[in-house]
Design a protein around this nucleic acid. Structure first.
Lengths: 195, 195
DNA sequence: ATTTATACGGCGGCAGCCTCCGTTTATCAA
DNA sequence: TTGATAAACGGAGGCTGCCGCCGTATAAAT
């Protein structure tokens, strides 16, 4: 028996609730980027000028909070795929997007553990984000293989996994260069006509 | 001015000290593999039947403990390189070793953050392990490129980084298959004669 | 203005981190 | 053997973070 689907709430959502939720995400994003995934939630609440109880009502667990942050960035990634696809030829678009994905990971340095659930994760919460990102990549990859430029006999997620590897590194001078080499090497492996 | 190199200690190292150190590493290895890098150090000490103070004297920080564990596995990895090299033709040896590296990572699931310092890390503690593993890989790679089977115009560590990416994943059914595809894809990218 | 569903804040119990120091013990010299 | 003593042990204690719980405050509805 289905419950109330849109479940018309007798009251409108309170304005302060929405506002504080956004505030918390904002500060959490900063905190995680700076201090890694184990940043203190109490500190985040304090920074945002809110009580710890408020944080926990909005985000019952650390993972839920991180999920919320990922959701935002994920949306940006998906949008970029569409934009790149209409601005570049297929293989170039794919390459650009992979590089964008590299940058996406760069910021998430400390949150490597969660990445596992993001890329191909089956956990209820993460699966949606995973599906959306993977779908975007699939679109790019299909376009590129349709023109005959690359073969595509491996799962696209494998690519993301490989690139995800560099997310664990300290972003020293070599970091970005290494990431680019990696993308090109992988694309080289996929290029047709080398049996 | 150099200090005393072997620094002849007036006394021999105490037997119980060595034994307990080994014990702690043993239990820590198990704990980290099962519960991830954030496993309770107090629990580890308790499991080993030792006090928390003892653990902290041997390993002043969590990282030092993890480092010690890695050191062991690292040695095994380096030894395997030599063994494989004398038992297989170059490219096969390289491939086998990469697969071994995959298994090495599989156990380290929860310790992804430390991996960054292991692979190409410059931190004083991790650098040694990094150097040794990289050197082993270099030997394998050189042998393979000497026979003209593969080109080798990227840094070998890049390979490890890519493979490291899969360490973040939950080892479901797909996990191992994906890892193998990854190794073959990378080797495909390196194979000569496809420009 | 009053009602009432929501949201807020922070206290409190618990667990893990890590330091410090009094006690115990393995080695060495006599 | 028997001290002497450097080295190792263990755990109490101070601190911080996690998170459930509930009394208080307030935005929306009437």
């Amino acid at each position: 028996m289905a419950k109330d689907s849109p479940s018309p709430p007798r009251r409108k959502a309170r304005a302060d609730g929405e506002r504080n939720r956004a505030l918390l995400i904002e500060f959490a994003k900063r905190a995680f980027a700076e201090r890694g995934a184990s940043a203190s939630l109490e500190q985040i609440a304090r920074d945002a000028g809110l009580g710890i109880g408020t944080l926990y009502r909005h985000f019952p667990s650390r993972d839920v909070l991180i999920e919320a942050i990922y959701r935002q960035e994920t949306d940006a990634l998906v949008d970029a795929a569409t934009r790149l696809q209409s601005a570049h030829p297929p293989v170039a678009a794919l390459r650009e997007w992979l590089l964008l994905f590299v940058d996406f990971l760069a910021v998430k340095k400390g949150m490597a553990e969660v990445l596992g659930t993001l890329i191909g994760g089956t956990d209820s919460l993460a699966s949606d984000a995973s599906v959306r990102v993977t779908a975007a990549l699939d679109r790019l990859a299909n376009a590129a293989s349709a023109t005959g430029d690359i073969r595509w006999d491996i799962s696209p997620v494998d690519l993301l996994r490989a690139i995800g590897g560099i997310a664990n590194l300290n972003p020293d001078d070599e970091w970005r260069a290494s990431a680019i080499r990696m993308v090109d090497l992988l694309l080289g492996g996929l290029r047709v006509g080398h049996r």
